[in-house]
Amino acid sequence: MTKKRKHQEDFHKVKLKVGKKKPRLENATDTNFKTRSIHLPEQLREDGILPTNNRKLNIKDLLSQMNHYSAGVKQNALFGLKDLLSQYPFIIDAHLSSILSEIAAVFTDKDSTVRAAAISLLQFLAPKIRAEHILPFFPLVSAHLSSAMTHISEGIQEDSLKVLDILLVEYPSLLMDRSNVLLNNFVELISHQQLSKQLKNKEKICWMLSVNPNRRVTSQQWRLNVLVRLRKFLQVMVEGSSELETDIEGLHEQNVSPQVQRNALYMNWQEHASGQQHIQLYENGLKYQTIQTVVGEP
């Protein structure tokens, strides 16, 4: 058999007739199969991992809506969070960091309805969260509170006092650690800085009471609202100082020398102060506590 004949037998080309189907190859793969899909949305939602509220939204869905541009969506998300957390309280500890960060972020929201919903949710959550649990996240909450207290919008300033009321009731000891910042915020709520020239041509910063005729309440009523909160805050600091002195006396009785001793409560009103004044506090006719405070120029 010649080489040409052998080559033709190995690579023989089959000629197809017109109208006939191409013969099936021996190594061809059959691709004819049928598929069916199974949907179990309710089973996935009720598995106990991500419970949902009445609107069938879980905690991740609601937290993601807090970053929406629409005020209505954010307000509904806050209402949904309150509904969800009231039905499933165990979610609070599992997602405490995310919940607090999202709520604190809307303290300065431009929409008043969103801020009102956030304050309502905070008032609902605060009694359920112990101080030692919120302690790692309290600096973030305090930072957003300070931002709201010093905000240019009068409505945000007014709502910041409502947030402060909740924190004063539930976490007074944690606010004491931020006393320097908060005291300065109280001053900025009712006054503004102004440069004054002294006799020796030295410029000095002093504080002047501010008056805003466009505010919803009168300037006198606004100052009263701020000073009422300041009184509560100072009372918390005085009571905290008294408890500390009691602990120190107990250590003295046990012949233990404490590293820190306080005979009085010192409050420094930053560089804008011009003099010092001692204030005596009395309770039931007896001297209760001595406070050394530094006050600015009127």
Rank of each mutant, 00 (worst) to 15 (best):
D177T: 10
Q123V: 09
Q87N: 10
N32V: 11
L183H: 06
N58G: 08
E243Y: 08
Q87W: 03
E253G: 06
L16F: 15
I134V: 15
L84T: 02
E188H: 14
G80P: 13
R36Y: 13
V163H: 04
F137S: 01
G285P: 10
S191Y: 03
I134M: 04
N284V: 04
I134N: 00
Q43G: 07
G250W: 05
L62N: 04
T29N: 08
K22G: 07
P41M: 00
W222H: 14
E42M: 11
L50I: 02
V106T: 13
F90S: 12
N185S: 15
L234K: 04
P258N: 03
E132L: 12
S37P: 05
T29Q: 09
P89Q: 06
P139E: 05
E102W: 00
Q75T: 14
N58M: 02
P127R: 02
W222A: 04
M1R: 11
Q65W: 07
K13R: 13
S241V: 01
A116G: 08
H151K: 06
E102I: 00
N255A: 08
L174Y: 06
F124K: 05
T293C: 10
N263G: 14
Q289D: 08
H192N: 07
P89S: 03
L140C: 06
T52D: 02
N255W: 04
I103A: 05
R36Q: 14
D47N: 15
Y69A: 13
D10S: 08
S196M: 09
K74M: 05
P41W: 01
R178P: 00
E249T: 03
V18H: 13
K287G: 09
A71I: 01
T31P: 06
L251G: 00
R262V: 14
Q123F: 05
A71Y: 11
L286F: 12
E46N: 15
M267W: 11
N67H: 09
D177M: 02
Q276H: 15
L44R: 09
K197D: 04
G19R: 05
L182G: 01
P51F: 01
S97V: 08
Q198S: 12
N76Y: 05
P89C: 07
K56Y: 07
N180Q: 09
F33P: 06
A273Q: 11
W222N: 05
R45P: 03
K197V: 11
N185W: 04
V294I: 12
L189Y: 02
G240I: 00
I205G: 00
V169S: 09
P213L: 04
I134P: 03
E170I: 02
L199N: 10
V181H: 07
A105I: 07
I291F: 01
T35N: 11
P23R: 10
S101H: 12
P23V: 06
K56M: 08
S153F: 04
T52N: 04
A143P: 02
K3W: 09
L251H: 09
S147H: 10
Y282M: 09
Q65P: 01
S101D: 07
S146N: 13
S112D: 09
D93G: 05
